[in-house]
Design a protein around this nucleic acid. Structure first.
Lengths: 155, 155
DNA sequence: TAAGCTGAGTTTAGAAACGAGACTTAGCTG
DNA sequence: CAGCTAAGTCTCGTTTCTAAACTCAGCTTA
C-alpha cells in the first residue's frame, strides 16, 4: 500500500497547509532566517543553520524550485565561478512569518533571566523596533484572534 | 556517537529556532489552525487535520506540555467524562504566525484560476478582512523586509 | 449482568526522512 | 601536476512517520 505522499498536507486547499507543504520540512525556515540575515553561500549557510550538508542541499533545491530563492553565479577574486542563493520577491514576502515566529519566541520562550530578545528587527529609517500586527481593512488596529472570525468561501 | 537531539534547532538562542523547536514538527501548525477554527475534540481534530492518530496524540501532548493547549474535561449528555483541547493565551498569541502563513499562501500558492483565497479572516466588529502588517514603534506602517535591519543584542 | 458502542487513545511493523561523515568534482594556485 | 577549496553527492545507521489493528473505560440497551 502506498503511503501518503510527503508534503501532502494540503488536503483541503487551505493556504496554511499549502504554505507548510513548501516550508514545513525541518530546517527550511531556519534557512530562510539566514537568507534574511544576508547569508548567501552554501558553507556559510551550513555553519549558520547547523543541519547536515545533504539536507541543506535538498532544502536549497526545493526553495529554488519553489521560487523562494534564486541560485545565481558569482566569482571571487581568483576563484572559479560558484553559486549563491538570494531571496526572490516571493521569498521576501515570508518576512512577516519569520517575524511573527520571532516575536512569539521572544515573548514566550526566551529565558526571562536574560535581558530581552537575542535579536531585534529595527526600522532602518527611524531605528524603532519593528513588529507584526493584526489590522483590518476597515482601519482598526491591534486586533487579537478573539476579534476575528474565519469565513470559508465557496469555490 | 550520539545523533543531534531532535528539536535541537536552537543552537544559538534565536527565537525563531526556539519557536520551531516547539512548533516545527510535521502537523503541529495544522493542529493549531484547527484549534483556532474551534476544533477541540480528538476525533474531530483527526478528521480535520488528516494525520495519523498516534501523531495527533503525540502533537497534542507536546502542545499541552508546552502550555499552548490545555486539556480539560467535558461531559456530553449521557456520556462519560472525556477531554478536549483549547488554546491558552500562549497559544492564541500564535495567531499572527498562522495568519502570516495563510496570507503568503493566498498570495503565492492558491491557484490563480480560482476566485480568491479559500478562507478569509474577518474583523468581527466591522466585517472587514484582517491581515498581518509590519509596523514600527515609531508609528510607521506598511514596512517591508527591505526597510528593516536586524540587531543582535549582547547577552 | 452481559454485550455492544464510542471516543480517545496505544501498539506495531514497514516506509520515508534525517544525520554524520566520507567521498567527489571542478577549477584555481604554487 | 599536486594540493586546495567551495559546493555538493553518497552511504548507512537512526529517527520519525504512516496506516491499520488493537485496547480501554464507561455508558446504553437488552
Amino acid at each position: 500500500m502506498e503511503a501518503r505522499a510527503p508534503k501532502d498536507l494540503a488536503r483541503d486547499g487551505c493556504s496554511v497547509a499549502l504554505a507548510l507543504g513548501v516550508l514545513g520540512e525541518r530546517w527550511t525556515i531556519l534557512v530562510l532566517r539566514e537568507a534574511f540575515y544576508g547569508v548567501k553561500r552554501f558553507d556559510e549557510m551550513l555553519e549558520a543553520v547547523g543541519c547536515a550538508r545533504n539536507l541543506l542541499s535538498a532544502r536549497l533545491a526545493t526553495l529554488v524550485d519553489n521560487g523562494i530563492l534564486v541560485r545565481s553565479p558569482y566569482r571571487d577574486e581568483g576563484q572559479r565561478e560558484r553559486f549563491e542563493y538570494r531571496l526572490t520577491e516571493k521569498g521576501r514576502e515570508l518576512f512577516p512569518v519569520l517575524l511573527a515566529l520571532m516575536q512569539w519566541g521572544d515573548r514566550w520562550l526566551v529565558d526571562a533571566s536574560t535581558n530581552g530578545p537575542p535579536v531585534e528587527i529595527l526600522h532602518r529609517a527611524c531605528g524603532a523596533k519593528v513588529a507584526v500586527e493584526l489590522v483590518c481593512e476597515g482601519g482598526h488596529r491591534h486586533l487579537g484572534p478573539r476579534d476575528t472570525a474565519p469565513r470559508r468561501r465557496r469555490r
